[in-house]
């Protein structure tokens, strides 16, 4: 086995994996804190990529500003989705919540196709064509940016959950929503900013990955699938689990695509979750209820 090729595959896998982690973190936060399985999560990733594209082309803003604006706008849209659908349904059965999030996903994806057109678009980024050599590994600057920005965002999220007042309120809600409400925590507020945070992260991921691929209105579907594989593998509600599972999935897909078959690469992820779930039905990093 050629070491250079191998190292390159690992590096590509880590970059892809980091993007998966960013998607999955929002998904797992929404589940861990609010007990909502949000099938529409991938659509916020799609919106993140498209809003970055439109802010860049229509208003002529540079890529970094466009990405930041898109993250903020999509966080706002996430809050709106929460207010309209998830908050009113919070006392309903999980089946109802699952179905309504599926409806929301179809609504955004098809609405996106209507608004943006089905043809692929390219997100412009000044880093997309510049190449960086790290030892024997060659990556575009954009892919390095995906990894670096994701690491910074994840550390910020970790510090936020661990030390801020809002983060403590989130963890309290995750452990016991009724108990948290009794101690005076505003659960409605926790709902709002958990959605803002999760959807903002999804949009950031879309804005970062956008320039490395073509974007379609249906990429949300792909994103939510990857997110779910990672979240299920790591354990629903576990942020640490999402980190390890995301990187693992990225690397395994990359190696599988390189050494086995590109066509069946997609199936590898699914085969992985099935294997994990048969072995540990609650995921690799699951323990009792709460945010980890």
């Amino acid at each position: 086995m050629d070491f250079t090729v191998f190292a390159q595959q690992i590096a590509n896998g880590l970059v892809n994996g980091m993007a998966y982690v960013l998607i999955a973190t929002g998904l797992t936060l929404v589940f861990g804190v609010l007990r909502i399985v949000n099938f529409a999560h991938g659509e916020f990733y799609m919106l993140g990529a498209y809003i970055t594209y439109f802010v860049g082309t229509l208003f002529g803003l540079d890529y970094i500003a466009a990405a930041a604006i898109s993250a903020v706008v999509v966080a706002g849209l996430g809050v709106a989705a929460n207010k309209l659908i998830f908050w009113p349904l919070r006392r309903d059965h999980e089946f109802t919540i699952l179905l309504s999030s599926l409806g929301l996903a179809l609504l955004i994806a098809n609405g996106g196709e209507l608004l943006f057109g089905a043809d692929p678009k390219y997100v412009e980024s000044p880093f997309a064509d510049e190449v960086l050599d790290i030892g024997t590994v060659t990556l575009t600057q954009q892919r390095v940016l995906v990894f670096a920005a994701a690491v910074v965002a994840l550390i910020a999220v970790y510090l936020f959950i661990r030390y801020s007042r809002f983060g403590k309120m989130m963890r309290a809600t995750a452990q016991n929503p009724d108990g948290a409400a009794l101690t005076g925590i505003n659960i409605g507020l926790v709902h709002t900013y958990t959605f803002a945070l999760a959807c903002g992260l999804a949009a950031l991921s879309g804005a970062l990955v956008g320039p490395t691929v073509m974007i379609f209105p249906t990429i949300g579907n792909w994103a939510v699938l990857k997110g779910f594989i990672v979240v299920i593998m790591g354990g629903l509600g576990s942020v640490t689990g999402a980190l390890f599972a995301g990187l693992l999935l990225g690397v395994i897909e990359s190696l599988g695509g390189g050494y086995i078959s590109l066509g069946f690469m997609e199936a590898i992820g699914y085969a992985m979750i099935i294997a994990v779930l048969l072995w540990r039905p609650n995921g690799l990093f699951s323990t009792a209820r709460g945010l980890r």
């Binding site: 589940f31 399985v37 999980e94 089946f95 699952l98 699938l225 779910f228 594989i229 299920i232 629903l236 997609e266 199936a267 992820g269 699914y270 085969a271 979750i273 099935i274 779930l277 039905p281």
Partner: peptide
């Protein structure tokens, strides 16, 4: 059961 089952069947369907 529940969400995990939904996602798992989605995975099998995709395979």
């Amino acid at each position: 059961v529940g969400p995990q089952f939904a996602i798992l069947t989605l995975g099998f369907g995709a395979i």
